[in-house]
Write a protein that binds this DNA or RNA. Sequence first.
DNA 1: CAGTGAGCGAGCTTCCGCTTGACTT
Length: 970
Amino acid sequence: MATGTTSSGTTRGKAGGSRRTPTSTGTASGRPTRRLVIVESPTKAKKIAPYLGNDYVVESSVGHIRDLPRGAADVPAKYKGEPWARLGVDVDNQFSPLYIVTPEKKSTVSELREALKSVDELLLATDPDREGEAIAWHLLETLKPKIPVRRMVFHEITESAIRAAAENTRELDQDLVDAQETRRILDRLYGYEVSPVLWKKVMPKLSAGRVQSVATRLIVEREWARIRFTSAEYWDIGAQLDAGAEATPRQFGARLTQIDDDRVATGRDFDSDGKPKAPTGARAQRTDARLGDAGSGLRILAEADARRLAESLQDQAMTVSSVESKPYTRKPYPPFMTSTLQQEAGRKLRFSSERTMRSAQRLYENGHITYMRTDSTTLSDTAIQAARAQARELYGDRYVADSPRQYTRKVKNAQEAHEAIRPAGESFRTPGEIAREVDGDDFRLYELIWQRTIASQMNDARGTTVSVRITGTAGTGEACTFSASGRTITFPGFLKAYVESVEDESPGNQADDAESRLPELTEGQALTAVELDPDGHSTNPPSRFTEPALVKQLEELGIGRPSTYASIIKTILDRGYVWKKGAALVPSWVAFSVVNLLEEHFGQLVDYDFTAGMEDDLDSIASGHDSRVDWLNGFYFGAGKSAESSVAQAGGLKKLVGANLEEIDARTVNSITMFPNDPQYDNVVVRVGRYGPYLERIVDGESQRANLKDDLAPDELTPEIAEQLFSVPQEGRKLGTDPVTGHEIVAKEGRFGPYVTELLPDPEPPADGTTKKKAPAKPKPRTGSLLKTMSLDTITLDDALKLLSLPRVVGTDPDSGDEITAQNGRYGPYLKRGTDSRSLSDEEQLFTVTLEQALEIYKQPKQRGRGAAAQPPLRELGTDPSTGQKMVIKDGRFGPYVTDGESNASLRKGDSVEQLTDERASELLAERRAKAPPKKKAPAKRTAAASKTGTTTSKKAPAKRTTTRKTPAK
DNA sequence: CAGTGAGCGAGCTTCCGCTTGACTT
């Protein structure tokens, strides 16, 4: 399987070409033409096979069958040494991709090959979108059929649609394939070039990508908005009014909205800084024009004002000054697509995106619903008829829309390869009818889909909204206007079947079926105020993203696809960028660092419009107006014909991750200034370090530090909390007092992980008159790292005292007279006798090993390090056919490796010590040699590694890579 | 962020988008 996507030539077809597939003619031998149809989904294959009859064999590819290699292990030997093997794309040679059959798809491919043998024609019936076109092309490239091949497309799975599609095929659209390949390569380059920058500058194993990085950025930006948010306080007056004994309802609530000519401020009148919004010129003008001299000013009520007004309105006459009534109509919502299904299942059933999709998959596979990964709200004609028939049956004629409703909502970048998500079949089964076969999540989700689909073909809801103004004059002379509004629904229409939930219900954000009744009121009518309550309110920060809210936002930006919405969330959770607090997605401090770096140095790549721009460019490739290579040249090298994109303007991705790498200062990136506008706390930074995030500030030239708890959400870190945290670590967690010394024992988190130490009493101040030149050496407190079995939360005083008792004198070596001690160190527990040391296998041995056992251990040769006896090889191999050198497998600190005395190469995933062949060993050694020549005797420069990574971390920064002992938090 | 003794073959991490079982507990 070589490179070169366009070189094969055999498959390049005219875009959009279409002709009738001959169907009636048979083969020369007289039997009818047999055709193999390949679709993507096995369920779909089963479904359409009966529609096509016996002359068709229907199989499925089960999604993509080939892809770029995931990593070095997947690269065929032939390309292993290539400089671009890591990317899987030969960037210097037309961006030729290297495709391999995905390992788990090998069996699928051989099954398809087998099926191909018994047919006369191949119909590639993968989905009618960009990815589907590419899958078709990969099938062609992989199967290399010697029979005629046609492309078959259909958008709905009904017998007529399928039969029509089989009759009306076209050729493969190579331009569309090119667009997909461009997308694939772009994502690979972005992901595999930018992620390593994060490994070097923030933390290993992190990742960046076109989709996940924007998702993370959205969540971090929202958190910043919450952090910066300042709440505003405002007051109004709630009135309970009485319309007299005849009225129903007799009483109703109203709210103070105007004082004289000034409007009373509500939450909407404040910005995120807690300040009143400046009225826009246009609005002020318009208001003036309409209301003449009224309503031009804004009045923010303070508590005292509100109380005073309420007081002076007591017992004053209240009169209805206006009644305005308007018709209320609501149209049904479109049928579900993936994003809206996830949103509603999230709100109504509290399902995560993943749970929704798992359940939907089961419903699909069991034939209860149509395909669940779709960006279309279109219903087939049969589905519309089914929905209408069912609505009629359940609710009667009057509830069904006069004519079929078709929803053509345009989602950004929608590909519309499938129908909307709806109950399957030409007549729908009610939830009650499938209850016996389906339960739990699946039943509830089906019910949701069924209701929504039925409702989409029903009539508008109709009713009336009424706005009433009531005026009274306060004892102090102000004219106070109260407002109330009511909504009555006279004809529920579709609301009878389905009402969409709202994320957070507030006065301005009510469900569509919410009703509030006002009594019949007429202008001039007198009312009595039963209650007048001054009411305090405060504005709220923007709420955090929930899973469905994030999916909605991504969809609006055209980022991600129905098949990936759930996995995007999984990715950012897995990377530790985000954690869940109830339903809310909270960013981690690492996410702040990563977004910091990306915004600062890769701004074009995390721009919210990046994907939208890419989609436009892909469209122009798909339509044949632009070329794949030109576009990628611009993106990667910042050169070529189409170099107008923002990334190209910045010099291209290669430059951004290469030459510009040195400009990225790790210390700056990993420092988050929390309160930049607070003069007292603007020196407080969160630092994201190897050992997890911590707080730091410099006071009088001295650094104060404090650990941050994992469950502290960034917006909860206020100056007060910071101050509190700074005061804690100095003390650590108190465990008690050492009965021997009387010193207090504390457990703390340190540079090398958790440890215990003692608090020494302050040294006595020097006595009067004595002017000692030199203070006595400050005594050092004893310290001890926690054993692996211990944790900071559970360690006891006894444990701590045991640790502080180290090193333990095991005894005296009778031969040398040297003392043998047991202690815990950098590399774990060990014995020490003079300068000679031996590792212990178990931390418990620190306290239990006897002199006898210790002497026995010293009799053994040193296991590791200089002076250690050479280890016998794990296994002897033959000679390397290419060099003639004898090869052996040895065990090393990174696991087993093969060596010929000069080069060493680790065994890879899938290699075993027992089964490694000479050929494989030779191959591994050859690979190693290709990458780097065997090491010379001269030791490498100590700073080489640091300069290679381009790290510009200042010397003051803690050495980040010096310890392997504790893994970073999480 | 505490300070506690050696020295030593790297290799791998990572993207997005299309689809489901095959694995083990």
